[in-house]
Design a protein around this nucleic acid. Structure first.
Length: 801
DNA sequence: TACTTAGCAA
DNA sequence: CCTTTTGCTAAGTA
């Protein structure tokens, strides 16, 4: 790799970073985010991803004079694009790479948001450090010219594949997958006059407020480089191409019908054969569906990034299907204000209620036009007028089988919808939820999410289930503009105590290990210290723990309230109210119930003591909990996000993985190895070896009850029993801890059962765990090299034994 | 109404 | 190369 690829800050006037930074800089980052997604999933598959040595040496390529200010490299043969990323103080230079050939998805997404072929080429040239190879230019021209030729349209609740080019349709029909999906294969193509395009004003913008016919906010093209001969040639060529299109458009469109349940199959196949389907809704020319009488309240003014997102969606005067990624906060609802009938789907009953409230808050919609469809609310099965908004949960659409529910379901599936809004769209790829995309007939689908992430590889399915990613906001930019809070992120390394580490190495299941590294006394102390510190600063602190046992143990020891799934509704509310209004309650402990389904009052500090493996989504969602802080615009205000990590354990590896998304969003995680003044803290817990040993025994006993249920023989005490009755489970833990009080028996018994477990789980032990352990070791070793602080002497790693 | 169960997601 | 536990929702039962 060239030594030119070092961390640099772009400066100067005519540089990519300073020119038109509002649009271009974020656009390129958006394009790049596709690449990073790819790279990441690839890395998971191949274990290690492209290593540095795999990258080629670019030093032989001729550089442009001002190359330092241009962030892209292109590998000539493979077409791989490499992006230098700036301003990552803690991580140093990082490279993303991807092979262009396999990702015309990216190109399609670019075309979808209104870029022309020459826009793409021009931008690529503009940002590239070297000349863009001709082969790659040709590839882009060929690929993009076929985009937008075929459309998926909905007419009278039936799906049609439509194109102005009859030959393209014939080509599609010859494809065995697509051909088989056609209905009435004997018939000729249907013909009709092509619809006309026009401009549209987006509600809530100045243009719309001024009531003048607004020119749509399509991306401004970069300044022309008229001297460049190649650019001009190519422009002529493209103009010729586009004129062809326009002529055809004046003409007629041809179409054939496909079965609704095959729509996603066809869509997927079309992408594979490089003729991706465009899904657009020309709602202003829709005469079949009544328009919904809805508009934003006159006082409402949308924020610039919301306008930008909407301009991507309505860029050519129609509504495009796709996904918009915005961090949490008001305004997601605003995109729902368009025309025709709307259906909104959410994950939980809570958000259904919220959506309804938001509709009423932001728009002038008649409350009786909103139909809420949940388990508790399934009486009304029709609109008062001919049109309206339906808000439902995914569950009701996909699972409900009760009589009343079927009636409404029928109403929903039998009619045609203008816009389907899918909240938390990242859940849609789950098998069950996929059903909604074809069981509900909608002209246009819009997905909303704050975190377009999954730990399986199903996220790509959204491309054919919904559409391309239209817009993604950058968290750091939003926080600089003051829309969300500034956050300091830190990873706190807590060394394991020798006793806990010995048991950690001896433990043979993920659970036991997990319990040991979250119950690490040093971690407890760190948590105690941080809570103390932030409460004194006047912060409201939330502590997250995925592990319920640890949650209770921490909360009880520190005498702070906690909420988990088993907490009754009224108690939950009481705790939250206290947290919000009572100045004496400044800390609350939450299980993963707090990730999604709790309406949290705003907190300003967040501490994570245990988490779900390497889930990037969870990390992002938790961070999102402190972004709304009202004090965000105060001078020098910071929110805090701590991840407590036990050193030299798998947790190190998980933590790094979990942070990947936030790091991509521009957050820098500081590493804290020592909390200043922690030794001097009064009432610090677990300072004596006796206390620590007692804790360890409790933990080990807890382990045993979970793993070796039959020893206790009573069903109530088994893990299964705990699942059945939550009250029973709570009592169990308490009783058994009391029983254990300072007796070494528990410890000895644990060792026996641990050995048994070793034999039984040997295969598991040797494969998966070893992989994780190796990675963790590598991470730990690297970190140890840097730090040289802590290593348990005399302990041998017995994981391979 | 309150509680339990099944099925699903992450 | 493997998979837990926790939580949510809908619907059934006393």
């Amino acid at each position: 790799m060239s030594n030119k690829m070092t961390k640099r800050k772009a400066t100067g006037l005519d540089t990519p970073d300073s020119v038109n930074s509002d649009t271009d800089a974020s656009d390129i980052r958006q394009a790049v985010s596709h690449f990073s997604l790819e790279t990441y999933s690839k890395r998971r598959k191949t274990d290690d991803g492209p290593s540095t040595s795999e990258l080629r040496d670019f030093s032989s390529l001729p550089l442009k004079d001002d190359h330092v200010n241009r962030p892209l490299w292109i590998e000539p043969e493979k077409g791989r694009i490499i992006v230098e990323s700036f301003s990552r103080p803690s991580r140093g230079p990082k490279t993303f790479s991807s092979e262009l050939q396999s990702h015309n998805l990216v190109l399609f997404a670019a075309v979808s948001i209104g870029w022309t072929t020459s826009d793409i080429l021009h931008r690529l040239k503009f940002y590239c450090k070297t000349a863009v190879p001709q082969a790659i230019q040709d590839f882009i021209i060929v690929s993009t010219s076929s985009f937008g030729k075929v459309r998926l349209v909905l007419k009278h609740t039936k799906y049609y594949i439509e194109s102005s080019d009859e030959q393209v349709l014939q080509k599609l029909l010859r494809d065995e997958v697509i051909g088989a999906c056609r209905i009435d294969s004997s018939e000729e193509f249907t013909k009709e006059a092509a619809p006309k395009m026009g401009a549209l004003a987006i509600p809530g913008t100045k243009a719309a407020a001024g009531a003048r016919q607004a020119e749509v906010a399509v991306q401004e093209r970069p300044a022309e480089d008229e001297d460049d001969e190649v650019v001009r040639q190519e422009r002529e060529m493209l103009n010729a191409l586009r004129e062809d299109d326009e002529e055809e458009e004046m003409d007629q469109v041809h179409s054939f019908q496909i079965a609704p349940e095959n729509a996603q199959k066809v869509s997927k196949r079309c992408r594979e054969i490089n003729l991706p389907l465009t899904e657009e809704y020309d709602f202003r020319n829709d005469e079949a569906n009544a328009n919904l009488d809805i508009d934003l309240k006159p006082s409402v003014q949308i924020r610039p990034y919301q306008e930008q997102a909407l301009s991507k969606m309505f860029g050519n005067g129609r509504a495009r299907s796709g996904i918009i990624v915005l961090p949490c906060g008001a305004g997601k609802t605003l995109v729902g204000i368009t025309a025709a009938c709307t259906i909104v789907l959410c994950t939980s009953v809570m958000s259904v209620v919220q959506w309804r409230a938001e509709f009423l808050k932001w728009s002038n919609i008649d409350p009786s036009d909103i139909l809420v469809f949940t388990a508790d609310n399934k009486q009304q099965s029709h609109f008062n007028k001919n049109t309206g908004v339906v808000i439902a949960t995914y569950n009701m659409i996909t699972q409900s089988r009760s009589h009343d529910a079927m009636k409404i379901l029928d109403f929903i599936t039998k009619r045609e919808w203008g816009l389907m809004l899918l909240d938390e769209v990242h859940v849609v790829p789950a098998e069950m939820f996929k059903k909604v995309t074809y069981s509900v007939a909608s002209h246009c689908k819009l997905g909303l999410t704050a975190t377009l992430l999954r730990e399986d590889n199903k996220i790509e399915d959204l491309n054919f289930l919904i559409g391309p990613k239209l817009y993604e906001a950058n968290w750091q930019e939003l926080s600089q503009q003051g829309h969300i809070a500034r956050v300091q992120c830190a990873e706190v390394w807590c060394p394991m105590t020798p006793e806990f580490y010995t048991e950690y190495l001896r433990a043979n299941t993920v659970n036991k290990r997990g319990l040991l590294f979250t119950m690490n006394p040093r971690k407890f102390q760190a948590c105690q210290f941080l809570i103390n510190f932030h409460e004194q600063r006047g912060d409201k602190v939330i502590v997250f723990s995925d592990n319920v046992y640890a949650l209770k143990a921490y909360a009880l020891k520190m005498k702070r309230p906690f909420i988990y799934g088993g907490t009754p509704q009224n108690e939950r509310q009481q705790v939250l109210d206290n947290f919000q209004f009572n100045p004496a309650t400044n800390t609350v402990f939450l299980s993963k119930i707090g990730d999604t389904s709790l309406d949290l009052p705003e907190a300003t500090c967040l501490i994570q003591i245990s988490s779900h493996f390497g889930s990037r989504r969870q990390e992002a969602q938790r961070l999102g909990r402190i972004l709304r802080a009202k004090r965000r615009n105060d001078e020098g205000f910071n929110a805090f996000f701590y991840s407590l990590v036990s050193k030299d354990t798998n947790e190190m590896y998980y933590a790094t993985k979990r942070q990947a998304f936030l790091v991509d969003q521009g957050y820098a995680f500081k590493v804290i190895t020592h909390l200043q003044g922690i030794e001097k803290m009064p009432e610090l817990a677990y300072t004596t070896p006796e206390e620590r040993r007692e804790l360890l025994q409790d933990v080990l006993l807890q382990n045993e009850t979970a793993g070796e249920a039959e020893v206790i023989s009573e069903d109530l005490f088994s893990e299964y029993g705990a699942r059945k009755t939550k009250k029973g489970a709570r009592r169990t833990a308490g009783t058994l801890s009391e029983l254990s009080g300072g007796q070494d028996m528990a410890y000895i018994e644990y060792n026996k059962s641990s050995n048994k477990g070793l034999k039984k789980k040997k295969g598991y032990q040797n494969s998966f765990m070893k992989g994780l352990a190796r990675k963790a070791d590598r991470v730990a070793a690297a970190k140890r090299e840097n730090e040289g602080v802590y290593w348990c002497p005399g302990l041998k790693d017995n994981r391979d034994a």
